[in-house]
Design a protein around this nucleic acid. Structure first.
Lengths: 223, 223
DNA sequence: GTCTATATAGCGATAGAC
DNA sequence: GTCTATCGCTATATAGAC
């Protein structure tokens, strides 16, 4: 008769990743114990080792689950922007919006903070995960920026993309910090609002003439 | 007859802070055990509790030792810049250079990474230390920027200062990351080189017209 | 696939001799 | 001010019943 369709059963595996993501972002990866994670997930302590082999395996799974779709979306948007002769703002938006979207999303908000912090993590394994996940995105976007900013030395483009990533990471990871420092006058708002602020700021920075070199009129790169 | 001058005896207290700073930046604060710290310092495990009361006390001392002079130097430079009618670049440099100097310094390099990561630390106590250490600097610099960028809403100035801090933090904390991602084409260079890149990029971003509002010619703010 | 029970190890902190 | 020894706790990981 009716096939046995599980009624959106979360599954221990997913529950463990959800709980780990939340606790990693709240306490830091190292400080989040498997006991706390399995307790929040309503699972048994041993389940982590059954499903992921070790805590490291769980960490890797938590990062991959979110980073893979975000970076795929970035590349998709970049491709679309390039097809339609996109300008600097569009390329920036292709990089920023998928990350800001995820950081805003209620269920993914935790991972937003986690991702922002991940770049600073001392753990070698995590660094390798990030390099693996980001290498194509980095390559494709720096290539696009180099094409849009032909007057800049490539080294300068790489540095500026580094600054772009820093501003994004700080925004995604420290949303509460600016609220605290500004006495509540500043709040994250929607992903689009945050993206608009970032794009304006970062596009102007990217268009600036090279520090030591000959001047170059800003805004000549397609907007 | 020569007076007994101790030959630059480091002292257990200083050695402990040096070792803690190095290990905090290598492994993260939580992951650096007191046993590893005291071993590297050539001191006894119990010495931490004698000199600092607890691991938290040691953490607080490590941050205060570096942050207090850096932030004092920032305020000193800002004061000098304002006396001489300093422009946006000078104010930015007053904020950036003391931190970049410390991050470059061989013996303080470890703390550079540590400070960059500190903003992302989940630990509430560390957040309180930072807020305490940075509140005056933040207040004075945002006031200076608001004066230099009168066309921008104050909220926008705060956001952009947030982006400035993000770029600086990412640069200070992830110097090796850009070397790795750029296949060695980019390196930190001197503090002045890094400051020149950052100032060019950030000044242009700060001068951009407000995202939603009416345009405003960049560069009208004193340079 | 999930459980209990446990092995093994490391942690921060403290007491008390010197 | 520095040491040894140890307490009390938590961590990750695993073995084996169900």
């Amino acid at each position: 008769m009716t096939k046995t369709i599980e009624p959106v059963e979360a599954g221990t595996r997913e529950s463990l990743m959800d709980a780990a993501e939340a606790l990693f972002s709240e306490r830091g990866i190292q400080a989040a114990s498997l006991r706390a994670i399995t307790e929040r997930a309503g699972a048994n302590l041993a389940a982590v080792h059954y499903h992921f082999g070790s805590k490291q395996g769980l960490v890797r799974a938590v990062f991959a689950r979110r980073l893979t779709p975000v970076n795929e979306e970035r590349l998709r948007r970049l491709g679309r922007a390039e097809e339609s002769g996109g300008n600097l703002e569009e390329v920036l938006r292709a990089f920023l919006v998928p990350a800001l979207d995820m950081a805003r999303d209620a269920s993914h908000g935790a991972f937003g903070r986690l991702m922002g912090r991940a770049f600073m993590e001392p753990d070698d394994e995590i660094r390798e995960i990030l390099i693996e996940q980001f290498s194509e995105v980095l390559h494709r976007f720096t290539a696009a920026l180099t094409r849009l900013l032909p007057e800049l030395p490539e080294e300068e483009v790489l540095w500026r993309f580094h600054f772009v990533a820093g501003s994004l990471g700080h925004t995604v990871a420290c949303g509460q910090l600016i609220e605290r420092f500004s006495d509540g006058r500043c709040a994250m708002g929607t992903a689009e609002e945050a993206a608009a602020r970032l794009v304006t700021f970062l596009a102007a920075g990217l268009c600036a003439p090279a520090p030591g070199g000959a001047g170059r009129p800003p805004g000549s790169a397609g907007h």
